[in-house]
Design a binder for these strands. Structure first.
Lengths: 224, 224
DNA sequence: CCTTTTTCGTGGTTTTAACCACGGATTGGA
DNA sequence: TCCAATCCGTGGTTAAAACCACGAAAAAGG
C-alpha cells in the first residue's frame, strides 16, 4: 500500500494529508488495492456501488449502454481520479453506469459505508478529507458539464471542434487524444462511420489534419 | 430572513440544523435575500461567480448559449435548489453558464468566499453543512448525468420518451412538465419545430397524447 | 373587450446523420 | 512470418433532423 502514497498524495482527494495521517486514514476507510486487467468490469450498471474507487494506474471508462445498443462513454479516468463517489454520497442503490478498465489498471477501493459517516474519533483528518472530496466532486461536476456542452451541439462537426478545442493550446505539431475512432464516436454520441465521414470532410476542407488519434488543428481557421 | 427558515430547513443543504444554529450560520455565511423578477439574470456566462444561490421561491433556468445561437437548458431549479455551488468550490473564475429567473423568484445568496474556508470558531455546524453540501452536489451530479443520458440518445423520439419516463409513475390522467415547447426543445437540445413534428408523429402513432405541457403516456406501449 | 405577443403546429425543402457493407491497413499473436 | 482480429475510411442508401415560413390559437396586457 505504502508504495502508492506518493500517487495518492498528489491526488485532489488526499491533498494536504501527510504520510502518517494518510496511513491511518486509509485504514479507517477500509482501503484495499485491486489490480484490474484490461476490460475488467469494476462496477456494473444495475449493481449497488459498494466502494469509491481511485485510479492509481491505468485508465477506466465510465460507460452507459442504452436500449438501442449504443454505448456512450461518459468519462475517461486516469490516475488520481475517482469513480462512484457521487453514487455513494447520493446513496444510489443501482448504478446507472458501468465502470470498466480500458487498460490494465490498479485501483484503490474505499468502503462506501465508511466514507459516509464521519469518524472524528478515529481520524482527525476527516474534515480535510471531506473538504477535498467536495472540491473533487465539484470539479467532476464541471467536467460533466463540459461533456454536456459537447452533446448539446447539433452537428458532428461542431462536437468535434468543441472536443478538440482544449487540446489546441498544447499543440506543437499536433496532439494525441485518448480515444480511438470508435471510442471518440461513443464519447461524442455519434455513429462511428458518420464521424469518420465528417473527419474526412473536415480534413478535405482544411480545418484539421489527423492520422489515427493524432490531430492537428489548422491555425488560420476560426473554429468553434 | 426568519420567514424563510422553514423553507431552508427543508432543503438538503440545511437539513439537521436548528433555528438558532441556522441563524448563526446564515450570518456567518453572509446570507442575503434577493428578489428576482422574471427574466432577471442572476449570473452571466463569463462573469465570476461571487455567491452560491439558493432558490427560495420561483424557478430558475441554468442555460448555455452556443456559438451557433442555440440555447441549451442545462437544468431547472425550484425551491430549495442551488446554483453556482460547483463553480464556487471548484474556484472557477468564469461561469460557463447563465442563470436566469424563469418566473418571479426569491433567492438566498451566500458569499462564495465564506463558504470555502471553514470557520470552526464561529459556527459549530460547519461540519454538518459541509456534509450536506457534499450530498447536495453529489445529487446534482446525478441529475447532470441523467440529462446527459438523454442527450446521448440519437433520435428526438428516444429523447422525448426518456425525458417523459420518470413522470410516468406519477400519472393518473397525465402529468404536467415544467417546460413549454421551446424550452423542452432547448432542454433536449433539438430544434423546436422538429420536436413539434416528432410529438405529432408520436401522437398519431398512439405512443402519447398531449396538449400544451400536459402529457399522457399510453400504457400498453413498451416505450424506451 | 380588443390588441399585441407568444406559443405551437404544419407543410415543404435542404442538410445531415444513421446505417450497412466492404476492403485495405495495421496490429498482435501464435 | 503468417493468420486473425481490430481499426478505420469510404461509397451508397435511407432516415431523420434542421431549417424556413406561415397561420391559427392561446395568453397576456391594457
Amino acid at each position: 500500500m505504502e508504495r502508492y502514497f506518493d500517487i495518492l498524495q498528489r491526488t485532489e482527494l488526499f491533498k494536504g494529508i501527510g504520510d502518517a495521517d494518510l496511513a491511518a486514514m486509509l485504514h479507517c476507510l477500509g482501503a484495499e488495492i485491486k489490480p484490474a486487467p484490461k476490460n475488467q468490469v469494476l462496477l456494473r450498471a444495475g449493481d449497488a456501488p459498494q466502494s469509491i474507487g481511485i485510479v492509481l494506474a491505468g485508465q477506466l471508462h465510465i460507460v452507459r449502454d442504452d436500449y438501442y445498443g449504443n454505448r456512450s462513454i461518459e468519462a475517461v479516468l486516469g490516475p488520481g481520479e475517482l469513480f462512484a463517489e457521487a453514487l455513494c454520497y447520493a446513496k444510489v442503490m443501482e448504478s446507472p453506469v458501468t465502470v470498466i478498465a480500458n487498460s490494465d489498471a490498479i485501483i484503490l477501493l474505499l468502503r462506501g459505508r465508511r466514507i459516509l459517516h464521519s469518524c472524528q474519533s478515529a481520524c482527525a483528518f476527516h474534515t480535510t478529507f471531506i473538504e477535498n472530496m467536495l472540491r473533487t466532486i465539484a470539479n467532476k461536476n464541471l467536467r460533466l458539464q463540459s461533456h454536456m456542452e459537447i452533446l448539446s451541439l447539433k452537428s458532428i462537426r461542431a462536437r468535434v471542434l468543441r472536443y478538440l478545442e482544449p487540446f489546441r493550446p498544447k499543440q506543437h505539431n499536433g496532439f494525441t487524444i485518448p480515444f480511438n475512432r470508435a471510442e471518440l464516436a461513443d464519447y461524442l454520441c455519434v455513429e462511428r462511420s458518420a464521424l469518420s465521414h465528417e473527419l474526412a470532410r473536415m480534413q478535405r476542407e482544411g480545418l484539421i489534419t489527423y492520422r489515427k488519434n493524432r490531430f492537428n488543428m489548422i491555425e488560420k481557421t476560426r473554429n468553434i
